[in-house]
């Protein structure tokens, strides 16, 4: 195992975060604060409780998941796409380092950043609403698993993308709608029965629901389904990355 390489990539990526503090951390925190002001305070004050939970508190897990998903994908995809764009990827490809070590370095850094942002958003939320966490260990586990799995997805995206437009295509056109329609701001039980069934095909539902369960002890779907969904998604991403490195897809050809 080339630990020095993993540490080098990890530190290099984390240094980029702190170099771009405004864009990396402060910007998502401000966006989330705005969501709380608009949805939590302005609209939430006119909403009834959902499953005996104040609306402002109810949306906290969804907002955390919204930001964490987007950040994981964008951090990891940018981390690998930028060296490709600059041409500096040659150094990683010519180094005595396995693809597992490359992934641990890049995805580890991207997931760490997203996790930190998730925790910062949780702390930001406490400034606006009352936040109680029933299952804190499970909350941290779900958050960490989500950060890792979607960073893996972002890594695939960064390798696949040939230009900046493609890099933004998936987050904008697929991920954002899935998150917004995945119950970030509502319970899927509020939907008509037909749409409830359709929504169950949205993988993000299981993530948000799982996190919501860790906060309130109740959720749209069972926590077991949520863990299973994250596990399957992570395995699929690992399999795709394994194939990418084995074939050299868009890296060594």
């Amino acid at each position: 195992m080339n630990f020095f390489a993993i540490i080098a990539i990890y530190k290099f990526e984390m240094a980029r975060t702190f170099r771009t503090l405004l864009q990396s951390i402060i910007s998502p925190v401000i966006s989330t604060a705005l969501y709380f002001v608009v949805f939590g305070s302005a609209i939430g004050s006119r909403m009834e409780q959902i499953e005996n939970i104040e609306y402002g508190s109810f949306i906290v897990p969804g907002l955390i998941m919204l930001t964490v998903l987007m950040q994981s994908v964008s951090n990891a995809s940018f981390a690998i796409y930028f060296p490709k764009f600059l041409g500096t990827i040659y150094e990683v490809l010519s180094a005595p380092i396995s693809y597992v070590e490359i992934i641990v370095g890049y995805v580890g850094a991207a997931a760490t950043k997203s996790f930190i942002i998730g925790i910062i958003i949780l702390m930001t939320a406490t400034l606006f609403v009352d936040v109680q966490i029933k299952h804190p260990t499970m909350m941290l586990l779900l958050l960490a698993l989500t950060c890792v799995s979607f960073s893996l997805f972002g890594f695939i995206l960064g390798i696949w993308a040939k230009n900046f437009e493609q890099l933004n295509l998936v987050p904008m056109l697929i991920l954002t709608p899935l998150v917004f329609l995945g119950g970030s701001f509502y319970s899927i039980n509020m939907l008509p029965p037909f749409w409830q069934q359709i929504t169950l095909f949205n993988p993000v539902v299981y993530l948000i629901s799982g996190l919501r369960w860790s906060f309130f002890g109740t959720a749209d779907v069972s926590i077991h389904y949520s863990l299973f969904a994250i596990g399957i998604f992570t395995l699929i991403c690992i399999a795709i990355i394994g194939w990418i490195f084995k074939t050299g897809y868009r890296l060594r050809n």
Binding site: N2, A8, A95, I97
Partner: peptide, 8 residues
């Protein structure tokens, strides 16, 4: 320094 680390 990054390059040195990358090469183990």
């Amino acid at each position: 320094s990054f390059s040195r680390g990358l090469f183990g």
